[in-house]
Design a binder for these strands. Structure first.
Length: 446
RNA sequence: CGGAGCGUAGCGCAGCCUGGUAGCGCACCUGCUUCGGGAGCAGGGGGUCGGAGGUUCGAAUCCUCUCGCUCCGACCA
């Protein structure tokens, strides 16, 4: 993309309403625009990141064997009356009447609706296991939205639902989600620690939250810092292999890591002091096993091998997709702006033309731009008639992980400059070598 | 929902207390000079002061109501 033809309304000054760094930078980098409290338009740059995050979530869900669906944002109230949650949910559920005075609502979650789909079409244990998921907008009418997309009222969320014949099967689905989530967050450049969110009955955990460490996090967390060194990396996990999946879960949950809700001071004290950490975290996902809570009242049953009809065991699993933009920025920025991890960056590399209008410089930038595009990469070429300082400041703000700087001075020596946004380190090399390096870097992330 | 603030040009703000022709910086437009980290000079465009009532000769300014947004608390993916 040529910046002169793009829509990137960056702000030099901080908008007054933004309190935390991710909100400030998202507004300043022209990623979002607030339309009402907790409700945002996604401008081109923000939308690109949102789509990349969605794409990673889709890929990792499907790798784990989960199947995408799409349910409406508007739901009939009757489904919620069946589960009893229409009255329980409270004022956070946005209730609407249509022209026929029918009670509708803007879905805050989808357990009822997915259960309705399931019971309409699935009758036999032979159709299990089944995990359906969607990425869809939700609405929760928070009393006090704040922090930009971190706590909006309208938000994009991946919600998945597993249906299994037995509790054991459902717990495997739970474990499968944990592993796929670990991989999902890693691809986004995040360290998200699964933390026990509430103690289950004896011997069984039934919910974990995934937290990204950040000083602005809403949750206080306690953990053994050796947990942050654990990496899934490129290892291939067979999601149908229960022992293997369970092994990974044990690896990532055996060290102490809990939110303040489930914190156990006595257990915490057993961690060697050098590894004990008390910090704050942003919740970016949660997995639940809840058994027959919805299947029973709503009649989601299958006939088992023994001919007996039984309610299915379910769980639900969420990833806060739009919130992740905020979480990533909170975890990865400096005083000049955002620092995108390669996995989610809106553009792969920025090209800064230091002397727009100079024949040789323009030509060199064009060559680099076209070469990168020919390699399937997505460069942002700053071809505006701006001074070098303004271009650098914009690039630093929007946070592309790599920058190729092209100016007459370097070109006279046959070199351009390749700069890492993260480290700030620059290297002079030929244009061809710079392109090769970028290609090589991104090969590892695709 | 309890408490506290703020709404004046696209953004950030002053002016309000003590009523009297609506200002500053950035951004935007034109010209010249600049040109490797948010340039300089000169000129220019843009605002029914959130909205509605009221007081007054006169309201951004005082009073009442209302809408919106933000912050602290409770709540929360």
């Amino acid at each position: 993309m040529r910046l002169s033809r793009y829509f990137l309304p960056v702000l030099k000054e901080n908008p007054a309403e933004a309190q935390i760094v991710s909100h400030r930078y998202m507004l300043r980098a022209g990623m979002i625009k607030q339309q009402a409290a907790g409700i945002y338009s996604w401008l081109p740059l923000g939308l690109k990141v949102l789509r990349r995050i969605e794409q990673i979530v889709h890929e990792e869900q499907q790798r784990a064997g989960h199947i995408p669906v799409l349910m409406p944002t508007m739901q009939p109230a009757d489904l919620w009356r069946e589960s009893g949650r229409y009255d329980d949910y409270g004022a956070e559920m946005l209730r609407i009447k249509d022209r026929h005075e029918r009670d509708m609502l803007f879905g805050p979650t989808n357990e009822e609706m997915i259960t309705d789909i399931f019971r309409a079409h699935v009758n036999s244990y032979k159709d299990l296991p089944l995990t359906l998921y969607q990425i869809q907008w939700k609405f929760r009418d928070e009393v006090r939205p704040r922090f930009g997309v971190m706590r909006g009222r309208e938000f994009l969320m991946k919600d998945g639902y597993n249906f299994d014949l037995t509790k054991d099967d459902a717990l495997h689905a739970y474990n499968r989600h944990m592993v796929s989530y670990l991989r999902t967050y890693e691809r986004m450049g995040l360290t998200a620690i699964p933390m026990r969110a509430a103690s289950g009955p004896i011997g069984g955990d039934n919910t974990h939250e995934f937290l990204v460490l950040a000083s602005t996090g809403e949750s206080e967390v306690f953990y053994d810092d050796r947990v942050t060194a654990l990496k899934l990396g490129n290892r291939e996990v067979d999601f149908d292999n229960r022992d293997e999946v369970l092994g990974v879960c044990n690896e990532f949950t055996s060290l102490y890591a809990r939110t303040d809700e489930t914190h156990d001071a006595a257990l915490f004290e057993q961690i060697p002091e050098a590894h004990r950490r008390n910090a704050r975290g942003i919740e970016v996902g949660q997995i639940f096993y809840f058994g027959t809570k919805y299947s029973e009242p709503m009649g989601a049953t299958v006939v088992g091998p023994d001919g007996v009809r039984v309610p299915v065991h379910m769980g639900s699993h969420g990833i806060g997709v739009s919130r992740l933009l905020g979480a990533i920025i909170e975890a990865s920025h400096d005083d000049k702006g955002i620092i995108w991890p390669e996995g989610v960056t809106p553009f792969d590399v920025g090209i800064v033309n230091l002397k727009q209008g100079d024949g040789a410089t323009d030509a060199a930038c064009e060559d680099i731009y076209k070469a990168l595009k020919a390699k399937g990469l997505d460069p942002l070429y700053d071809d505006r008639d701006e001074r070098a300082g303004a271009k650098f400041a914009s690039m630093d703000l929007i946070g592309l992980p790599w920058r190729i700087t092209v100016g007459p001075r370097g070109l006279a020596n046959g070199v351009v400059e390749l700069t890492s946004r993260r480290s700030g380190e620059s290297e002079e090399l030929s244009a061809e070598a710079a392109v090769d390096r970028i290609v090589h870097i991104y090969a590892a992330h695709r």
